[in-house]
């Protein structure tokens, strides 16, 4: 088993890449299909029952909806590749421009929240894991369990509302809405990060305790290594695999969670836009934003796998 390793790694990446491409195609099909799966006529639904039939027909023709499906899909794909995602039903702006203007706000928010969550949660979880090893310190165990258990269960929009009420409206420390300056980032990032922090801290604790029970940590303890070396060099690297796997899933969840947080803070990101576009039946925008969200999810998952493969020397035997 030691000899086929290089080939194993190569085929792992090949399989992983194939999966990425297949998922991307499926996503493309789904976003294309979305507009056709809407019962009735999306243009009629968007313009309302009072709109004149000529306008509906013209709009349909402009969207190419009068052509056969395969032709439409071919055009859709071709347009996408040249960066054209259609125009908004409402404002007439190109969807690509709308997304390009808002995507950075959403991504920065999600990435900062994810980094904050990891930076707080991993040390916290390790500390709790070491402290409550083998059932020591019942008090810490119960406190940690109930605080994180509660924090995980409260959705991000409630954190957002609570933070806005207390720190923006009540105390006036931070702006309540919009992206106005550095201080305006604080509350949205916090609201987005609290849940994942609790989640990762719990996981990190479980992983730490699993590691502490292993034979090699026992041997490392028999070597009488000082605590920082033992925990940082022997325990931490082995807990990261699981933490990052979930961390990656959380990042995608954060991007979705940002929809709600953006809504509360009127944050000029994609999330606010998709809510607007769905409520106003602006289908091209909704279609484009969902496609972008989906692509982000696929890319993040791919990146997490790449990172894990790079971090964990044994990951090539992991089944994709």
């Amino acid at each position: 088993m030691t000899f086929s390793r290089r080939g194993g790694r190569g085929s792992f990446w090949r399989r992983r890449l194939v999966r990425f491409v297949v998922s991307l195609i499926a996503l493309l099909l789904a976003s294309f299909a979305m507009i056709h799966l809407i019962p009735g006529d999306p243009v009629r639904a968007s313009l309302g029952p009072a709109a004149p039939a000529e306008l509906v027909a013209a709009r349909r023709a402009a969207l190419g909806l009068d052509q056969p499906l395969p032709v439409q899909f071919a055009h859709y794909t071709r347009d996408l590749l040249s960066g054209n995602m259609g125009t908004s039903f409402l404002s007439g702006e190109p969807v690509t421009g709308v997304i390009a203007a808002r995507l950075p706000n959403t991504l920065t928010l999600a990435v900062l929240a994810a980094l904050l969550a990891l930076a707080v949660a991993v040390p916290l979880g390790m500390w709790a894991g070491v402290r409550t090893e083998n059932g020591r310190h019942r008090g810490t165990d119960v406190t940690f369990g109930s605080v994180t258990g509660t924090a995980v269960a409260v959705p991000e929009f409630l954190y957002s509302i609570a933070l806005v009420s207390v720190f923006a409206i009540g105390l006036g420390w931070f702006p309540p809405a919009g992206r106005t300056g550095l201080t305006s980032w604080v509350l949205p990032i916090l609201a987005l990060a609290i849940g994942p922090t609790a989640m990762i801290a719990r996981l990190s604790r479980v992983e730490t305790q699993r590691e502490l029970g292993t034979e090699y940590v026992r041997l490392a303890r028999a070597k009488r290594l000082p605590a920082p070396r033992l925990y940082l060099r022997h325990v931490l690297p082995n807990t990261l695999t699981a933490t990052l796997t979930v961390g990656g899933l959380l990042l995608t969840a954060l991007i979705a969670g940002s929809v709600l947080v953006e809504y509360v803070f009127a944050w000029p990101g994609l999330g606010l836009k998709i809510v607007e576009s769905i409520t106003q039946k602006d289908y091209p925008v909704a279609q484009g934003v969902i496609l972008v969200y989906g692509t982000i999810v696929l890319v993040v998952n791919l990146l997490v796998d790449v990172l894990l493969g790079w971090l964990d020397p044994t990951s090539d035997i992991r089944e994709a």
């Binding site: 979305m34 969902i290 999810v297 998952n301």
Partner: peptide
């Protein structure tokens, strides 16, 4: 199996919004 594995990686809210767009508000 492949479809399920791909969908599991998708955030629930996105799936919910996708479905909600189709099924209507």
């Amino acid at each position: 199996t492949g479809t399920v594995n791909a969908l599991v990686a998708f955030p629930g809210l996105l799936l919910a919004m996708f479905t909600a767009v189709i099924a209507g508000l």
